[in-house]
Computed example of a mutant assay.
Amino acid sequence: MYELHDIEERLHPSERMPVLFVGHGSPMNAIEDNIYSRTWASLGRELPHPQAIIVMSAHWLTRGGTSITDAPRNRVIYDFGGFPEPLYHVRYDTAGDHDVARIAADRLVDWMQSYEIALDRQWGLDHGTWSVLRWLAPHPDVPVLQISIDYSLPLPRLHELFGRLRRLRDRGVLFIGSGNIVHALRSMRGDGAVWDWAREFDEVAEAAIRERDLGTLLDPFRVGTAARLAVPTDDHYRPMIAAMALLHPGEELRFFNESIDLGAISMRSFITA
């Protein structure tokens, strides 16, 4: 793995890049002109130019180890079914970068003895990544990589693991967590109403994020029934924890897309201010 002097040669010192957590919601947000896609596009025009983009998506889950994409070109993964045909023709042409993958792996590899960090040439970009990036970075001219979410790690350990990548923000790497804080697909509704428990947990999470209350964020089910209903499985919640791990003490956050879609999908997102 690369040593520090190699990192300095490949990723140059930079202004501190932002961290984002993006509630990505429906895959249709990739092609629809709506409040979410318009906000992503507007935000993208404000972002500093990175040397690389690394995304932690809820749609790449591994168990017992963490993987990093390592293909020269990223294939687009249509990891959904039953949507309109145009969604399956979306292209998002991006390069990977072996050096950046190795650098990120080097930051993680010594985290825990015998914990596996793997470079993966098969995955690509799933819709948790490209549905958002095609608005945030519509003409990508830097490498894009994904890092998987280890679904077997307790949340405190996941937070500890991703914290090891924090200093790459000072070397031109922009990080994005892509998921949803409230993600209860079986409770979606089309009448415009929002479930009380969805709103309750979204507000609890907002306060905990704002106050850096890791006790609540890393043990969300202590909130009670609202958490159990809002986070029936925590696959979409975990990218938010990964994004929180990348924050420096005292960093300010700005929330955006602060709404709940289809009654049970929180689109709440944040970016370092």
Score class of each variant (00 low, 15 high):
12 H>K: 15
27 P>V: 07
147 I>K: 10
4 L>G: 03
264 A>D: 12
167 R>K: 09
145 L>T: 09
187 S>W: 03
125 L>R: 06
269 S>W: 02
53 I>G: 05
55 V>M: 03
27 P>W: 06
191 D>W: 11
38 R>W: 05
253 L>S: 03
111 W>P: 05
143 P>E: 00
217 L>E: 09
79 D>M: 08
2 Y>W: 15
208 A>Y: 01
101 A>G: 02
55 V>H: 07
195 W>E: 06
53 I>C: 00
14 S>R: 13
262 L>E: 15
227 A>F: 05
127 H>S: 10
174 L>G: 01
218 L>T: 11
33 D>L: 08
133 L>D: 06
254 R>P: 08
270 F>M: 10
82 G>Y: 09
216 T>V: 15
188 M>G: 09
61 L>K: 15
86 P>H: 05
56 M>F: 01
235 D>M: 02
234 D>Q: 08
36 Y>R: 13
9 E>M: 09
133 L>Y: 07
167 R>G: 12
145 L>Q: 05
150 D>E: 08
201 F>G: 01
271 I>W: 04
152 S>Y: 02
144 V>K: 06
76 V>T: 14
138 P>V: 02
201 F>V: 02
147 I>V: 15
102 R>P: 02
87 L>N: 02
228 R>M: 12
59 H>E: 10
237 Y>H: 05
221 F>S: 03
167 R>D: 15
96 G>L: 14
15 E>V: 10
138 P>T: 00
72 P>C: 12
43 L>N: 06
250 G>H: 03
40 W>A: 02
78 Y>Q: 09
69 T>D: 07
235 D>I: 02
268 R>P: 03
264 A>T: 03
8 E>N: 13
205 A>D: 09
80 F>M: 12
112 M>K: 15
227 A>Y: 05
18 P>F: 01
73 R>E: 15
109 V>M: 14
131 S>P: 11
273 A>G: 13
49 H>Q: 14
191 D>E: 08
262 L>G: 03
78 Y>K: 12
131 S>L: 11
6 D>V: 09
76 V>S: 06
268 R>H: 13
92 Y>T: 01
223 V>N: 08
47 L>K: 02
208 A>Q: 07
20 L>H: 02
64 G>T: 05
72 P>T: 04
103 I>Q: 03
62 T>R: 14
47 L>T: 10
111 W>V: 08
137 A>D: 13
67 S>N: 14
28 M>A: 00
173 V>L: 02
19 V>Y: 00
133 L>A: 01
123 W>L: 07
127 H>T: 11
81 G>K: 09
162 F>L: 09
260 I>F: 03
232 P>L: 08
229 L>V: 00
47 L>N: 07
118 A>D: 09
55 V>S: 00
52 A>C: 13
157 R>E: 15
256 F>N: 10
206 E>P: 00
101 A>R: 07
269 S>L: 10
46 E>Q: 13
64 G>M: 10
16 R>S: 11
32 E>R: 14
29 N>V: 08
9 E>R: 15
106 D>A: 14
33 D>R: 14
149 I>A: 00
205 A>R: 01
89 H>V: 01
253 L>N: 07
48 P>N: 05
11 L>T: 04
2 Y>F: 14
